[in-house]
Amino acid sequence: MTRTTLLSSPTESTGKTAVALALASEAQERGDDVGYMKPRGTSLESVVGKTLDSDPMLAREVLDVEDEVHEMEPVVYSPTFVEEAVQGRVDPEELRDEVKTAYDKLADGRGLVFLEGADVYTTGGVVGLTDADIARVLDAHVVLIAGFDGYRSVDGILAAARVFGDRLAGVVLNGVEDPGFDDVEGSVVPFLESRGIPVNGVLPYDRSVAGVTVADLRDRLNATSLTDASHDGYVERFLVGAMSGEEALRQFRRTKDAVVVTGADRADVQSAALEAPGVRCIVLAGGLEPPSAVVSKAREKEVPILSVGLDTVAVLDEIEEVVQHGRKPDASTVDTVRDLLTRHADVDALLGD
């Protein structure tokens, strides 16, 4: 009989994809025939003329499986789809049948199937396909992958636990930063377990997994690099260079691991950014190049300058998206998370062994 585990989350960007594929990889290593499915695609991008979720494609690569993407992702939960559902042009019962049919084909002959939930566990309500609905339809156990952003994060975990009820097999707290790690293990874990919620692991924050590099920004923006400086530096925040050069310098010196977004005509802001040790990158909107003196200084200080054809508002929207939600997982991310799980989680319990 196939054991099916759904990885869900009370909030966005908690690392469900990497954890699901890391667990699936570990199960493969132990000799299990493993499948992966994301019933509703929500991490959407355009691929060969179709809107698809990138996570099933990563699963095909990491797990070396040949399942069809449309079976791994039977529902593309796009804005257009949601609009049609709200307008009554989608039949929820037919949709559930489609998901069940795709699952049955994918699960046939396999010992384990990992289901990845949507961005948050409530997504899909307009068609009766929330994560709780999926768990019921496909008879899945649920593991909640939760971030920790202070003690109020516990509220979200408790709310999700009530929704999943007896199907909840456990919780993994992921990406817990060092200042709060001891508090989580010493207070949060015992509290949750006193409420009947088993905690299967507490994974520390790892910058190589969750951090966003200059290279990630360059690729997301399709930017041109004006210097040969390394793009490996991490950025955690962005600043808009719309003030005077003197004010910009005061502000930039108070920050760290920042990207400065400004126009190519603001040489004063660019120069101020190059004087601030916490600025990791300068992004110039509008597609124009800065003065040669600024480029020379950036090369000397080994600070990347990226030129982007988009206007400032569009650039900020793109940067905000990637900085807030983190980088997309890849095969190396999965390997790192697998190592973290081995060291900081009860993998046997997560695999149902």
Results as ranks from 00 to 15, higher is better:
residue 244 S to I: 10
residue 350 L to T: 04
residue 253 R to H: 00
residue 26 E to D: 07
residue 292 S to D: 14
residue 41 G to S: 07
residue 246 E to Q: 11
residue 200 N to F: 12
residue 232 D to Q: 02
residue 42 T to I: 07
residue 293 A to E: 13
residue 339 D to G: 05
residue 45 E to S: 13
residue 284 L to Q: 05
residue 120 V to Y: 03
residue 251 Q to C: 03
residue 315 V to E: 00
residue 196 G to I: 08
residue 281 C to S: 11
residue 262 T to I: 09
residue 178 D to C: 02
residue 105 K to I: 08
residue 342 T to C: 06
residue 30 R to D: 07
residue 260 V to P: 03
residue 273 A to T: 03
residue 293 A to C: 02
residue 99 V to E: 02
residue 299 R to M: 07
residue 241 G to N: 03
residue 103 Y to M: 10
residue 229 A to E: 00
residue 260 V to D: 07
residue 347 V to Q: 02
residue 131 D to S: 10
residue 318 E to K: 12
residue 214 V to C: 14
residue 232 D to T: 04
residue 303 V to R: 09
residue 189 V to R: 15
residue 25 S to W: 03
residue 298 A to H: 04
residue 278 G to S: 04
residue 224 T to V: 14
residue 175 G to P: 03
residue 95 L to I: 06
residue 174 N to V: 06
residue 51 T to L: 15
residue 190 P to R: 10
residue 305 I to E: 10
residue 79 P to V: 02
residue 102 A to V: 09
residue 83 E to V: 07
residue 14 T to F: 11
residue 38 K to F: 05
residue 182 D to F: 11
residue 258 A to E: 09
residue 65 V to W: 02
residue 186 G to S: 12
residue 332 S to E: 12
residue 153 S to Q: 00
residue 280 R to G: 13
residue 129 L to E: 02
residue 31 G to H: 06
residue 182 D to S: 13
residue 286 G to K: 01
residue 292 S to Q: 14
residue 334 V to F: 08
residue 274 L to H: 10
residue 200 N to Y: 11
residue 151 Y to F: 14
residue 191 F to M: 04
residue 254 R to A: 12
residue 168 L to P: 05
residue 75 V to D: 12
residue 28 Q to D: 00
residue 352 G to K: 14
residue 268 D to A: 11
residue 344 H to L: 06
residue 26 E to G: 01
residue 125 G to F: 13
residue 7 L to V: 05
residue 228 D to I: 08
residue 163 V to P: 00
residue 77 Y to S: 11
residue 113 V to L: 09
residue 89 R to N: 12
residue 322 V to L: 14
residue 43 S to A: 15
residue 230 S to W: 09
residue 270 Q to I: 15
residue 148 F to P: 02
residue 201 G to P: 13
residue 222 N to I: 01
residue 22 A to R: 00
residue 97 D to E: 15
residue 182 D to T: 13
residue 339 D to S: 13
residue 46 S to R: 15
residue 182 D to E: 15
residue 311 D to M: 10
residue 180 G to H: 13
residue 289 E to H: 13
residue 323 V to L: 15
residue 4 T to Q: 08
residue 84 E to K: 15
residue 89 R to Y: 03
residue 37 M to S: 03
residue 206 D to Q: 07
residue 6 L to G: 03
residue 13 S to H: 12
residue 82 V to P: 01
residue 124 G to M: 07
residue 319 I to G: 04
residue 296 S to T: 14
residue 127 V to F: 11
residue 196 G to M: 09
residue 74 P to Y: 10
residue 222 N to G: 15
residue 241 G to M: 05
residue 190 P to L: 12
